[in-house]
Structure formats: C-alpha cells, structure tokens
C-alpha cells in the first residue's frame, strides 16, 4: 500500500466535495440569521453545518489530512465567493479542520463509525468556541446564557456534522462511488487471497 501523502486524485476529490459544502456554507448564513430570535441561541443548534465538510470528506476518502484540507477548502470556497462573515470563515475553517483532524489522527485514521464522526464534530465545535472566546468576549456573557450557547452548539454539531454526515456517507456508499476513492482495505486484500 502506498500511503506516502495524498495524491492529486485524493486532493481533487476532497476539494470538489469541499466546494459542494462551501456553497452550502455560503447559503447557510441567511438560514443562520433567520433563526436568531434575540440571542436565545437557537441559531447555535444549526451552527454544526459549518463543520460537516471535514467529517464527510474523511468518511468518504479515509486518508490522513483529508479532514483538514476539506474544511480549509470549504471555508476558502465560501470566502472567495464573498461570505458575509468575511475573513472570519477562513481562519475559523483552518482551526476547525485541524481539530477534527486531531480526532481522526488520535485513532490513527482506522475508525470510520458514527462515534468518531461525532467526536470530530465536537472537536470542531471546541475550535470554533475557542475563537469565539477571544473574538466575542464569551466570558462576559451571563453564566446561564453562556452555558446555553455552548450546549446548543455542541448538540447541533453532533447532530449535523456527526450523525447526519455519517448517514449521508452511508447513502453514498450504496451508490458505489466511494470505492473509487478509498484506499484498498484489508478485506480487499483478503478477498484476493481466497
């Protein structure tokens, strides 16, 4: 198995998936501020959509580095077409992708289940909260409100970037398209020996 870095094929497929989600990211902004009724943080429940590129791309391609590249590419796509959030998205994207990547790396890129996807989603949520802490003076919110904010974001992330991403990839597997881009697994080699 040749695992020395990502090949152009892996990168292009990752980036194309990311661009699809980049468009979703861009369209998600109006949705986000439409469900923002006076700061009760309903909006935080759907924030997780902005973490989905990393988990979906990794679950499809299953190679090191893919989660990070996907999240950066999706954020850049959103940035280049002119996001209302501007530069923020790019910088958040880098950190969110990095944190998701850490989770996948921690299990040596060997697990592709719903739990690991949810953990990566939580990691991305933590990354975004870290930035919010500096950018949005989070600690200056009243305690109950801050707690609501954090819980809503984490729950939303698990639901969208964890569970939904997992089932999306499951459905894609049924089309057979994932076999094109995944590295050969141990079962494939065993099948050859039979």
């Amino acid at each position: 198995m040749n695992n020395k870095g990502l090949k152009l094929t892996d990168i292009l497929v990752t980036i194309v998936i990311a661009i699809v989600f980049g468009i979703v990211y861009k369209l998600w902004t109006p949705v986000y501020y439409a469900v923002k009724p006076f700061g009760l943080h309903f909006d935080q429940l759907i924030y997780g959509m902005w973490f989905i590129a990393a988990t979906v791309a990794f679950l499809i391609i299953r190679k090191p580095g893919v989660a990070l590249i996907a999240e950066i590419a999706a954020a850049s796509g959103e940035f280049i077409v002119g996001s209302e959030w501007g530069l923020e998205v790019l910088i958040y994207g880098v950190l969110q992708g990095l944190f998701a990547e850490f989770v996948f790396a921690a299990v040596r890129y060997k697990r592709y289940d719903i739990l690991i996807a949810s953990l990566a989603a939580i990691a991305s949520a933590i990354a975004s909260l870290l930035f919010d802490y500096y950018k949005g003076y989070l600690d200056d919110l009243v305690a109950w409100n801050l707690l609501l904010y954090i819980v809503a974001r984490v729950v939303g992330s698990i639901a969208i970037a964890g569970v939904f991403a997992y089932y999306l990839v499951k459905a894609l597997e049924a089309t057979g398209v994932t076999n094109l881009v995944r590295p050969a697994s141990k079962e494939d080699y065993d099948a050859l020996d039979k």
Binding site: V20, A171, L172
Partner: peptide, 26 residues
C-alpha cells in the same frame, strides 16, 4: 438532491484527476 449530486461530482472529480495526473499537473 444531495446523493446524486455528490456522487456525480466525485465521479467527475476522479476522472479529471486521473487526466491531470497523466498530464503531470502534480
């Protein structure tokens, strides 16, 4: 919408990538 669009995009990306690699884009 999302399943056919994603799967077609991946297939297309894969085809383009093979061609690009053959032409030494990397």
């Amino acid at each position: 919408y999302s399943i056919p669009m994603l799967s077609q995009s991946i297939r297309r990306a894969h085809r383009i990538a093979v061609a690009m690699e053959a032409k030494r884009f990397s």
